[in-house]
Structure formats: structure tokens, C-alpha cells
Amino acid sequence: MIKETPNPPGSETDTDPASPYESLDSKKFHEAAERALDHYLNPAALKEAKTPRKPSTMFMVAPDMDSESLLANACESMASASVMLSDFADLLEGPHRNKALGIAQVVMLGELAVNRALDNIDPKG
């Protein structure tokens, strides 16, 4: 004898019975997979479907800033980051310290490059 069991609560889906998707989550998963495939296999279709991104103006550099001022500010920011990373590395030990010192070295190399670019700019007369 087969005992009839009722459907457990919450087993009903909110989708159309003719839909190939089991639930709304599977539909979202399918859409995400399609976007990922388009990104790698058909980037032209992705660009056509997208509207141009409008950058946020919350933290915007003034468009009329001269290159010398921008480079000087970048140099100061990188020097500060280098000092903070060195101080932070002093608090660490082992491989974590080596990673922090490696990041500090990359920042320092960037600072040197910005300094050289700043040296190459003719000062305003």
C-alpha cells in the first residue's frame, strides 16, 4: 500500500509551469551565466547592450588642474602611503611583514616614477 504524502510547505514555485527554470534563483543564475559568456565570447554584444557609464562626481579632480600640481599631489600621497606601510610592517612578523614591505617597495617605486615625471615638467614661468 502506498501512503499519500502532501507537498511540503513552500514547495510551490513562483514561476510559470511551462518555464524551463525551476525557481527565480535559477533564472538569475542563467542570466548571470549569459552575461559572463557574452563578456568573454561576444564582447561586442555586451558593449551594444550597455549604456555608457557615467562616473561619479563625488571625488572628482578638477578638469582644469595642471599636470605639475597633479603630480606633486600624487607624489605626496605616495610618500605618505610608503611611510604608513613601513610603520605597519614594523608591527608584523614573518611572511605578513614581507608582504607589507613588498607593497611599500612598489609604492616607493611609483613615488620615484612620479618624482621623475615631476622633474621633467617645465615649471610655469
Rank of each mutant, 00 (worst) to 15 (best):
K50C: 01
R53H: 07
R53S: 04
R53F: 12
R53V: 15
S56A: 04
T57P: 02
T57D: 10
F59R: 00
V61T: 04
V61D: 07
V61A: 10
A62D: 10
A62V: 12
P63D: 09
M65I: 14
M65C: 11
D66C: 13
D66F: 08
D66T: 15
D66Q: 13
D66M: 08
D66L: 09
S67V: 14
S67G: 11
S67N: 07
E68G: 04
S69I: 12
A72H: 05
A72D: 03
N73T: 12
C75D: 06
C75W: 13
S77Q: 07
S77W: 09
S77D: 02
M78P: 08
A79D: 08
A79R: 11
A79P: 01
S80P: 01
S80D: 13
S80W: 15
A81E: 03
A81D: 05
A81M: 10
A81T: 04
S82C: 05
S82E: 12
S82I: 08
V83H: 14
V83C: 00
V83A: 07
V83E: 08
M84G: 00
M84Q: 13
M84T: 10
M84R: 15
L85H: 03
L85W: 02
S86H: 05
D87V: 02
F88L: 09
F88S: 00
F88Q: 01
A89K: 01
D90H: 08
D90N: 10
D90A: 08
D90P: 00
D90G: 08
L91S: 02
L91V: 01
L91N: 01
